[in-house]
Design a protein around this nucleic acid. Structure first.
Lengths: 339, 339
DNA sequence: AAAACCATTCAAAGCGATTTCAAATTTTGA
DNA sequence: TCAAAATTTGAAATCGCTTTGAATGGTTTT
């Protein structure tokens, strides 16, 4: 069922039918109704490729994911939020996965050159993100989930990681902790650097010296976190509290604590960052987990809006949002043990 | 940079350039090289929409995901496998998320009618899957991840859930367990039904009566599993072993066991199904988890192949794969306790 | 009643590729 | 050497939509 068929069926020209369906004002109300009805009846949908070719807009936004590294639970939540928002605007999400750094930039180039997407979303940027640089050069609109420091105008939405970690750290200091371990994300990623900044700021505000041995950077997986925590717990004096970068990390640290024969919330404290996964609830953990919390799904939805704004012509340097992060105290963070 | 520009630049016709780039035989080798070089040089990429319109193929395959329900860790692993395979064929993955059952079928209709995708992939089908029925009607090619029992030819890849559960259950019976709980997936989903079949078969082979109170059906989340396991552990006689439908489920059950003051692998045993998540390793859990294991990422890659086969014209009833499931015994499954 | 004006509708020209069919060129064979 | 065959190139149609510019018919104004 093509536009042409529909037009013939109605005894109208393609022009009029097209206008009627797209809400142009110069078509008689009665005609519009007739057309809409017939289209609905016959199940007409414009051919996406033709529509795209004619309008020059692809009706899709792109997401390039770095293999297993990035396609974890965070991304699925984000995607689900973003998708919810985009669906109502009939915009698709094109997902490309790449294995290497090499392939990654090539993928952006490919998507941009073939005009498969109208805009892109960038994730977990580094302090000086080359993907952002590239897209700027390619003149492909994009919105950053996170922040980067390049001297080009960039639209972004980020959470206030620095403040989150500063408050979490301060709280642990209030509880008497002095050896606080930071199990952070990959070095160079802006969010990890921001968190480190907050952590260090809180320590220095109290005159507590930081210890490099208590700071680690790695991917957010259960296993890696387990190893790191295990090693840290063998230090003397050992850390009495952990700041975990994600719930996966928290799980790994938790395991290390238990294996070392200690009890979370009593012998060792922990505050983890919670991106709010429906299938892993900090409140229902045992003991329940204190967290810095910010819904990554909400962020996904909002970024959908931002993308639409940018595509709608809003200047990118007017599109910035910094979200506060909640600090939720539960059982996993208790007073420092007395040795 | 359009084909036309490239052709003019080379002093050739669009026809020849197009042919040269697409590997048609009727173009002189020297010309082909010259064209390829220039295309590369000038960074020419065919406009995706135009190409799609001209060829009638969209170069994308579709995935409709049911909100948070389905966009969990399973899906991200699957997607990552699928993406890896499709990327090399320059095929994109179009992800649509929907909230309700209602929206879901509409989404399939929409994708099919607008010809946005050449094929689709269906997940976690029910015994009699209406999405499969619909796509068959719409004449949209698709591959099922799982199985369904409709009387239409359908391409599918599934793992042998029945055999997996039968072996896992038998093993627990060998260890002396008689009260074995099955924390299964959502009722009606084929994989859950298959697993139940295997479980029941193993019990009846030993003449052990099954107990409905020890069988539950629900989504695979940590929290739900926790509640279920907690309730089951209060039964008398209590279950001495659990069969967990996923690693998330296993985490919840584990928590319930611990909270009840018992030790996994000693007081209570567990065998969980492991879809192999890179960030949640059964071998590194404490105690390490016995599992029925099958990589969902591998399945994703292979389904990519199957989609290509179907698109290549292979008859769908020749595209069936049933994968065996490994049984990996570790510390979480021990002999039944003596009361 | 003619002029001017609206409100509707339509024919045809794109959009950027592929592909059919014909033309031009080169190679082959006698 | 020249016709026939094979190779290589090109002009134009096509895919299904949007959109420009023109045409149609009916009202209102003068």
């Amino acid at each position: 069922m093509r536009l042409k068929d529909l037009a013939e069926h109605l005894g109208l020209s393609q022009t009029t039918v097209s206008r009627a369906l797209n809400g142009y004002p110069e078509v008689k109300e009665a005609t519009r109704r007739r057309v809409a009805e017939a289209a609905d009846q016959l199940g007409y949908r414009p051919n996406a490729s033709a529509l795209r070719l004619a309008t020059g807009r692809s009706g899709a936004i792109g997401l390039v994911l770095r293999g297993a590294d990035e396609l974890g639970p965070h991304m699925s939540e984000f995607l689900s939020g973003l998708g919810a928002r985009m669906a109502s605007h009939d915009i698709d999400i094109l997902v490309t996965t790449v294995a290497s750094q090499q392939e990654e930039l090539a993928a952006y180039r490919r998507l941009a050159a073939s005009q498969k997407v109208d805009a892109m979303i960038l994730h977990s940027p580094t302090l000086h993100d080359e993907r952002a640089e590239l897209l700027f050069e390619l003149k492909t609109p994009f919105v950053l989930h996170g922040r980067t420091y390049i001297d080009k105008p960039v639209a972004w939405l980020d959470i206030d990681n620095t403040s989150a970690l500063e408050r979490a750290t301060s709280h642990l200091l209030d509880l008497g902790h002095r050896r606080i371990a930071l199990v952070n994300g990959i070095r160079g990623r802006t969010f990890a650097e921001h968190r480190e900044l907050g952590y260090l700021a809180a320590l220095s505000a109290r005159g507590v010296a930081f210890d490099r041995a208590l700071m680690s950077n790695s991917a957010f997986t259960d296993e890696v976190a387990f190893r790191i925590a295990q090693a840290m717990l063998e230090l003397r004096p050992r850390p009495t509290a952990f700041l975990a970068g994600s719930m996966m990390t928290a799980l790994g640290i938790f395991r290390a604590i238990r294996q070392a024969g200690m009890t979370l919330g009593i012998d060792v404290s922990m505050i983890a960052h919670d991106d709010v996964f429906p299938y892993l609830n900090a409140d229902n953990m045992y003991p329940s987990m204190s967290t810095t919390r910010s819904s990554i799904r909400q962020a996904g939805m909002r970024i959908g809006d931002l993308v639409l704004q940018v595509l709608g012509g809003k200047p990118v340097d007017a599109v910035h949002e910094l979200w506060p992060v909640e600090l939720v105290l539960r059982e996993s963070s208790g007073p420092a043990p007395l040795f």
